[in-house]
Design a protein around this nucleic acid. Structure first.
Length: 480
DNA sequence: TTTCAGTCAATAAT
DNA sequence: ATTATTGACTGAAA
């Protein structure tokens, strides 16, 4: 029986990154985090019988984060940007569905990633998710599907009232309820403060002299500039931290080998499949690259759907043929529930056509978080209780998982800060991202079997892709 | 309390 | 439409 430890090891490996797991045993600590949940589910379970589908559903990303070897945040963001642009995927969708972050945050993260060592456990999470996403061969397809569904949904929404030709009256839009503009609640939203360039200049000057101004200085500045003191305080906090960050990136670039390839997981290996000159429409090289990676590194499982919670996925996409995706929307307002799930799928069966059917994943999503808060007040948030395991197949996941997103609830990991990575003492070699994949973990027979399976799966997947490429409908999705 | 890290979310800029 | 910027907020350290 697979031990938790082993499972973890495998999972970690699938990360495919740098890493050297150092000799020490990596897992001791994990267990402490969520006591009951996971642990048990080892395999016993049910039917999945025959296939060696592993389920490491039990591992939460927080644990993954804690155990993760050092990742090259710069390379990760670089690759993510490539994949997104190559496939015409926006950061909004990516952020909301993969990372559980808003567009602005994603933009910032991709543009100015902090070095791994400077990140807190919480801050590493998005990078781990990105790495996972990059490793997952179906990630792009999934996102594409979602994009399609969203589009369809919005289209439907638009036309929904128009059909019979009647009711040219626009009112229908936006339900009567909410409506009305400024009056409700009486409180206009506080206007966003926008500092004038000169004000910023003044603040910067003040910063040069005193990066940490005293209460007194702050008040003086505020008075002088006609700003609220809290604005001045916030400005200093933000400025300091942003300056600091710039620093990091400088440092980081300085050390980087500079060459491109360093971030690209190109493997020289097997010529097998490889791109036989097929590049039907568009440079989808990154995709191929991904393929290579997977093939070689044997990332067996995919952690799948980290579904996000965040906010926003419109409930519109709920129905639809989400191949395998199951969203649940709990209804109104604000309930964010979410869940993150890592689940594994079995690889063996082929991924049939395109994305359909092949993998089963699921996700549960919360909905509508943002829709204003009207009603009552602000505090929102819900203790979102229930989990809503609705569609989840197997995995016993963890309901108790803290929702990564949303107000108040941030997840914390039980692990002590220092703990996590403890094992890997210091520099993991590698990092080259070139798939070095240090395998330090022992390779058991189970793994071997898996590997074979993966190979087969990869073949299928590749075939699939080729077929797809040949008949790609990919239309630039545009307009009518 | 104050600072820091992460994010959000409005709005600027492309 | 998307992506970038940035003041403000939240929770955790110090």
């Amino acid at each position: 029986v697979r031990s938790l430890t082993e499972t973890v090891a495998i999972a970690t490996e699938s990360f495919a990154m740098s890493a050297a797991p150092a000799a020490s045993v990596p897992s001791p600590q994990l267990s402490l985090s969520s006591p009951g949940l996971e642990a048990r589910q080892e395999e016993d379970h049910v039917s999945p019988a025959a296939t060696p589908a592993l389920s490491l559903s039990a591992i939460s990303i927080q644990e993954l984060v804690a155990m993760s070897p050092e990742l090259d945040t710069y390379c990760i963001t670089k690759r993510v940007k490539e994949v997104l642009t190559d496939n015409n995927l926006g950061q909004r969708l990516f952020g909301e569905t993969v990372l559980g972050l808003t567009q602005g945050s994603v933009s910032d993260l991709l543009a100015r990633p902090k070095p791994w060592q400077k990140l807190s456990l919480k801050g590493r999470e998005p990078f781990v998710r990105m790495q996972l996403w990059l490793n997952d061969p179906h990630s792009v397809d999934r996102l594409r599907n979602m994009k399609r569904m969203e589009k369809k949904a919005s289209l439907k929404r638009r036309s929904t009232v128009i059909p019979d030709g009647e009711s040219p009256v626009p009112p229908p839009t936006s339900p009567a309820p909410a409506a009305v503009s400024p009056a409700p609640t009486g409180l206009a939203k506080k206007a966003r403060v926008v500092l004038a360039p000169e004000e910023k200049e003044a603040l910067k000057r003040a910063y040069e002299e005193e990066p940490y101004p005293s209460q007194q200085t702050i008040e003086m500045l505020a008075a002088q500039l006609g700003l609220r003191t809290s604005t001045v305080i916030n400005w200093f906090h933000n400025y300091r931290s942003r300056i600091r960050r710039e620093h990091f990136i400088e440092e980081m670039q300085q050390k980087s080998p500079g060459l491109e390839g360093s971030c690209t997981p190109r493997m020289a290996n097997d010529g097998a499949v490889d791109d036989a000159g097929l590049s039907p429409d568009r440079p989808r090289s990154t995709e191929e690259q991904r393929l290579n990676v997977e093939a070689d590194q044997c990332q067996v499982l995919q952690f799948e759907s980290y579904s996000l919670p965040p906010a926003s996925i419109k409930q519109e996409m709920v129905e639809e043929e989400a191949s395998g995706i199951c969203f649940r929307n709990e209804g109104q307002e604000g309930l964010p529930l979410q869940t993150l799930h890592t689940q594994v799928i079995e690889v063996g069966s082929g991924s049939g056509s395109g994305s359909e059917g092949a993998y089963l994943d699921e996700g549960v999503k919360g909905s509508s978080p943002k829709p204003e808060a009207e009603g009552g007040k602000g505090p929102l948030v819900s203790p979102f209780p229930s989990a809503s395991p609705s569609c989840l197949p197997i995995s016993g996941e963890t309901p108790p998982l803290p929702p990564p997103l949303v107000p108040g609830a941030s997840t914390h990991s039980p692990l002590p800060p220092g703990a996590g990575p403890g094992t890997r003492g210091s520099s993991p070699l590698a990092q080259g991202s070139d798939g070095a994949l240090a395998m330090g973990w022992k390779e058991g027979s189970v793994r071997k079997a898996l590997r074979d399976e993966v190979k087969a799966a990869n073949l299928n997947s590749i075939i699939n892709r080729l077929e797809k490429a040949a008949s790609r409908d990919d239309s630039p999705d545009w307009e009518f």
